[in-house]
């Protein structure tokens, strides 16, 4: 191959050193483990009816408070409901909480962060004050207070989480955009006459989003913890909905005699949480340039 051919055969745009395009060839085992756990969780959430042996609310008065057995691998509760099936059906609700609880914060936080980071000035000053004020607010107390006033239920939980949650994404994105916009490729974009929107969306954001993406994984795990806590307190998903926090609350009075009612849903929370953490750690290893 001649030198000219060699140059021509190269991709026109060089791969960037940072950001999402840097994924090739460095798949970490934490990423794979987290990905597999969450993939399995997603399958359970999408098709619980195909996998769960019983319906989540099917009463069976002949099998009340039965310990784990072949017929009921995770045992049964005080209504004879199958704990394995209820735990599986709860994947649908709890993954939904993780997704919808973080959806608005991710989108809106990214938008605000990009604006603040790109334009700076008085926008940055105001944003700084808002961050100072919000960060000192005890998050759980605020969420509980909002849910208390709006009423229990998942939708109000999403509202409560979204009111505060976007701040953290905006902060991460703003800090990164501020760095990226000073780099040469951003200046090149401006020289090319690209619109501001195009520079932000196509050029700066893909390079600035790594930290927020990693935080999103942690945030989804936190959201499940929060959702199940509120479910446990009776302020989140309402019984008889199969949600892990609700399931654990169902079994709390039977802990000494029928531990399986509460223990297995808790294990599901831990495994899912670990899945998100591993995925986040893996992404972090793969996307962040080594120091």
């Amino acid at each position: 191959m001649t030198a000219a051919e060699d140059i021509l055969s190269r991709p026109a745009v060089r791969r960037r050193r940072f950001g999402l395009s840097n994924l090739r060839g460095r798949i970490s085992w934490t990423f794979v483990a987290g990905f597999l756990i969450l993939l399995a969780s997603l399958v359970l959430a999408i098709a619980p009816g195909l996998i769960a042996p019983y319906k989540p609310a099917a009463f069976d008065y002949k099998a009340i408070l039965k310990p784990p057995s072949l017929a009921h691998p995770f045992g049964s509760d005080n209504f004879g409901r199958d704990i394995l099936s209820r735990t599986i059906w709860a994947y649908r609700i709890d993954l939904q909480i993780a997704f919808f609880g973080t959806l608005f914060p991710v989108v809106f936080g990214t938008f605000v962060g990009a604006m603040v980071g790109y334009y700076g000035g008085w926008l940055e000053t105001i944003f700084g004050r808002v961050v100072d004020a919000v960060i000192t607010f005890p998050f759980l107390v605020l969420v509980i207070a909002i849910v208390a006033v709006l009423g229990p239920g998942l939708f109000n939980l999403y509202i409560a989480v979204s009111i505060v949650g976007w701040i953290f994404y905006a902060r991460l994105i703003a800090a990164e955009i501020k760095v990226q916009k000073r780099l040469d490729y951003a200046a090149a974009g401006r020289v090319m006459g690209y619109s501001t929107a195009r520079i932000i969306l196509r050029h700066l954001l893909p390079n600035a989003i790594t930290a927020a993406l990693i935080y999103w994984m942690t945030d989804m795990a936190l959201c499940i913890l929060l959702g199940s806590s509120l479910g446990y307190l009776g302020l989140g998903a309402q019984p008889p909905t199969a949600e892990w926090g609700v399931l654990i609350a169902d079994g709390k009075n039977y802990m000494s005699t029928a531990w399986w009612i509460s223990i297995f849903p808790g294990v599901a929370i831990v495994i899912t949480g670990l899945g998100f953490s591993l995925l986040g750690d893996g992404l972090s290893d793969m996307l962040r340039p080594k120091r």
Binding site: L225, I248, M255, W259, S262, I263, L274
Partner: peptide, 21 residues
Amino acid sequence: QVGLSMPVFYIGLVLLTVFSA
């Protein structure tokens, strides 16, 4: 890491059952 993935009420419930009940 496992401890961090556990909800507070769940840890409490387990400790309560084992050490108190």
